[in-house]
């Protein structure tokens, strides 16, 4: 790569709510610096001026839910030197992966007046199920500070300082008293760090927005939730949210039948 040329950034959207790419626009204090450090070549949410590829860094938001998108992601990969997925949809299939647990035609029939207009796949799958992904940034939504860290690391050619351990370690870093030991079911011990342990700081159990941590012991957590009084339905519903199709969450949720 020409050392004087700014790396070219592209931001892509698949099945998603746009919240994660909006995190990039939320980086208000850093936006001008970012625009100086990279060439924002393809970011339709920010600018209608779309430049052709190839791109040095592609940020991919959203999951694959249509045959059209399953084709499109291949083309994105072909044009991208580095491909990073951002957010729960892109990394695990997102909330829309609840379809994976039922018949998508039933949902379509229940929601749309003319279901025959809808062309969709039976499942919502993460980008990594379709193409090689160089790095995954977790969260629903992602943490904008981690996004800046990711891009800064990319620009410096270093590894992002982003931990894959439990949320518990973030709770302890900020001095939050453990809500689970005080009797409240919490997904923190099996959930990937990154949010800064927001919910326990407000005396609520973790919702698992960042998906499974590096070595989640789901069965042990499930047993403890039962001990704390959670019903099988409570456990299933807690695990079947934004990261429902992440394999450890999916498997444990299905182990708790009524």
């Amino acid at each position: 790569m020409d050392r004087d040329r700014r790396p070219r950034l592209a931001v892509w959207k698949f099945a998603s709510c746009d919240g994660c790419q909006l995190s990039l626009l939320d980086c208000e204090d850093e936006l001008l610096t970012l625009a100086g450090a990279v060439e924002i070549a393809n970011f339709p949410e920010a600018s209608s001026a779309v430049l052709e590829g190839p791109y040095d860094l592609s940020l991919v938001e959203g999951s694959i839910t249509t045959a059209h998108d399953a084709e499109r992601i291949l083309k994105v990969r072909q044009q991208s030197r580095h491909l990073v997925t951002i957010g729960a949809c892109a990394t695990s299939g997102g909330i829309q992966a609840l379809r994976n647990f039922a018949d998508v035609n039933d949902f379509v029939a229940a929601v749309y007046a003319s279901p025959h207009y809808i062309s969709t796949l039976a499942t919502s799958t993460p980008i990594s199920a379709h193409v090689t992904v160089d790095y995954e940034l977790h969260g629903c939504p992602i943490n904008k500070e981690q996004l800046i860290e990711l891009i800064s690391a990319f620009l410096a050619g270093r590894k992002p300082a982003i931990a894959a351990h439990s949320v518990c370690i973030e709770c302890k870093q900020r001095g939050t008293v453990c809500v689970m030991v005080q009797g409240q079911p919490c997904l923190g011990p099996v959930t990937h760090a990154g949010c800064g342990a927001i919910c326990p700081a407000y005396r609520r159990g973790c919702y698992g927005c960042y998906g499974p941590m590096e070595t989640p012991n789901m069965a042990a957590l499930g047993r403890e939730w039962r001990t704390l009084g959670a019903s099988p339905r409570d456990i299933r519903r807690a695990l079947q949210t934004f990261n429902a199709a992440a394999e450890p969450f999916r498997k444990e949720s299905e182990a708790h039948a009524d």
């Binding site: 518990c168 941590m213 012991n217 069965a219």
Partner: peptide, 11 residues
């Protein structure tokens, strides 16, 4: 089989 490997004990 019981350990969550969450790290709380060390913290």
């Amino acid at each position: 089989a019981r350990c969550l490997t969450c790290g709380n004990c060390t913290m």
